[in-house]
Each structure stands twice: as C-alpha cells, then as structure tokens.
Amino acid sequence: MFKRLHENGAKKVRIFVDGAPTEVPAGETVAAALLAGDDVHCRTSSVSGEKRAPHCLIGVCFECLVEVDGQPNRQACMTRVADGMKVRRQQGAGGGAA
C-alpha cells in the first residue's frame, strides 16, 4: 500500500511475516514494514473477527497489535524490526496464554 521513496544506502534486516521472509530497512517499525506490503491487515478483531490494520502510528489506537516472536498484542507501530524477527498477523485475542 506504501512504497519507500528510495532504498539505497539503508542497512537491511530480514524479518518473517507469517513465515514469509522480507527485507526491510533497519530502524523501520513493524507497522511500516507491514504497510509497505500489499495486504496491510495486521490482525482480526477479538470481538467480531473483522480485519484491522494500523491506524494512528503513534501508539494510541492499539489497532496494530501483532504477534512478535511468539508474544501476542505487541504494538507494531512502537516495535522496531530486528534481524530474524518473526511477525504474525494476530487472530482474535492471540493465543499466548493457552
């Protein structure tokens, strides 16, 4: 949905989104990395199951909750990518406790 204006220079890290590897500039947030893709939804609502995507990008709305390295409910807009990071779109409340 978004594109990077230029890619040269920036150091890249590899993250996995739902298992698929993708190269993103170091220092980017997980939300920015997701928004640079085609399918920007990051979770399904724990109430209705409808798809949700990052909305405010300043840590207020909590729409961008994803699973990061097995931890559910991480705010993608407040989390920076790291090499090898595993990001999963979260289904409902997230299955962490079970």
């Binding site: 204006l5 920015a32 995507a53 405010c56 990008l57 709305c61």
Partner: peptide, 24 residues
Amino acid sequence: TLPGVMALGACQTLLKQAGQVPDV
C-alpha cells in the same frame, strides 16, 4: 475500521520515519 482507512497524520509519520508514500 476497514484496513485502508488511516489517520492522515499516520501517513505523514510514515514519510518522516520510513520515507514511505502511498502507492495505491
């Protein structure tokens, strides 16, 4: 709440933070 509806400020944050702009 549909994916694709975002705050305008979020778009500007992406520009500042990640040098990203919409391509849809």
